[in-house]
Design a binder for these strands. Structure first.
Lengths: 232, 232
DNA sequence: ATCGGTAGTTGAACACGTTCAAGAAGGGCG
DNA sequence: CGCCCTTCTTGAACGTGTTCAACTACCGAT
């Protein structure tokens, strides 16, 4: 949560442009206010004032208020990856690995449930750069898909050869579904989302195992063909 | 598309309050401008001006710009129901009935794809009254679920006794998934969405049929239990 | 040291959704 | 006819996200 350079761990990074400091200041201030007041209640003027810069300056670094959310995405993704590491180290079976990684994702998001819910709507807009399917989000998205690739690769599970290459993206899609449910989840502590994970993972596990059965091959093939058709 | 009283077909309806005429004028003007210019590009001032009323007057009838969308929902639902009728009359098998009704839904929405996509984001916000899961949307939602109930009831399909009561809502949920895909579908004429329907319906059909098999009973039960848990 | 150009910064101004105090219109009742 | 109360209507005003022309700070080249 505290600032922590992601890539180069050298103290000063002279490679970056002058305004990098200002950029981070604005970003951190915005994140803090979002958490404190919620997204809609945080005005660009308030962010600028708290950060001690002019309104226009925030727009120099972030094209819009929505673009500040993308920072939140990227940050969450990094935290998710870190929180998933112990699970990937510890678990070997596919089911527990998947469940652990999904729970880790919700763990990371939980402190932000209040305000995350209000802006996830922007992510749902297809034309928005914030959509998890958009080109602008391809970085975090691919990182997330890779994470589910690790869930699979490190596991002892035996998967249908045709399904295997598609599975990481499908698992990511399932994770998006979990998040969609989580956003709407008003149960205290979002316990229902936890139940969803614990209930759905065994089903997915069983489904993946069944995909290898000779009798179900046609169905597996049919599903995969459909998915390939629908992807562009 | 042209104005057409839905319920009472008597000429004058004196039962309604004085401003009903104004309400419809504003509503129709808004729908027209939404289609012509898109949602974001249509300002409340423009709606008011085109309708020949003051801005505040629009807010007397519709709590917000978003609330005008709900009118669009309701209208679309009615049109969907009407478009589905021939299918329900014609088809007897479950698969064709379901496919026909899903296609009918997309048929109705297709002319609005351009602007519908831009406002479906509002529907994704959990706190919004526009969410298909919200209390305010319960009317159209239940009407839609009923429609899928008819798909099932009128069909020759034999369904697992435990699954049957849950199935209409599950089919509606699948329909929401189709719409979510449709919103993001940028293929010309949204042909991919048509492929999704044609590809997914046989799978659903087969899945429903399989649910009766003794071997799969535990899985069916497991899925239904999970769903019951997650519903509130 | 001076110049020139890029990067960074400013805040007033704009258009929008929304609110609200004020008023107009209508109709029932004496 | 005059009164009152509800329903309806108005448009100026507010706060918001966003833009942009002007300005400043910095740095390499002359």
């Amino acid at each position: 949560m505290t600032e922590q350079p992601a890539q180069t761990t050298t103290a000063g990074d002279p490679a970056t442009a002058r305004g990098e400091q200002t950029r981070q200041l604005i970003r951190d201030t915005a994140m803090r206010l979002f958490r404190e007041r919620g997204y809609a209640q945080t005005t660009m003027r308030a962010i600028a004032q708290e950060a001690g810069v002019a309104v226009g300056n925030a727009y120099y670094y972030f094209g819009s208020k929505d673009h500040l959310i993308q920072e939140f995405y990227a940050q969450s993704q990094v935290e998710h990856r870190a929180a998933a590491q112990p699970v990937l180290d510890r678990e070997e079976a596919f089911g527990p690995r998947l469940a652990g990684v999904l729970h880790a994702g919700i763990d990371v998001l939980t402190p932000s449930h209040g305000f995350a819910a209000t802006f996830f709507k922007t992510a749902a807009e297809p034309t928005s750069p914030l959509s998890p399917f958009s080109a602008e989000s391809s970085g975090p998205r691919e990182a997330a898909i890779d994470l589910f690739g690790e869930v699979l690769a490190g596991s002892t599970a035996t998967v249908d050869a045709e399904l295997r290459p598609q599975l990481p993206e499908l698992l990511w899609l399932a994770y998006m579904g979990v998040i969609l449910y989580w956003v709407h989840d008003r149960s205290p502590g979002q316990t229902k989302t936890r139940q969803l994970i614990d209930g759905a993972v065994p089903l997915i596990d069983r489904l993946v195992a069944l995909s290898r059965l000779r009798v179900l091959r046609p169905v597996t093939r049919q599903v995969l063909d459909l998915i390939r058709t629908l992807r562009h």
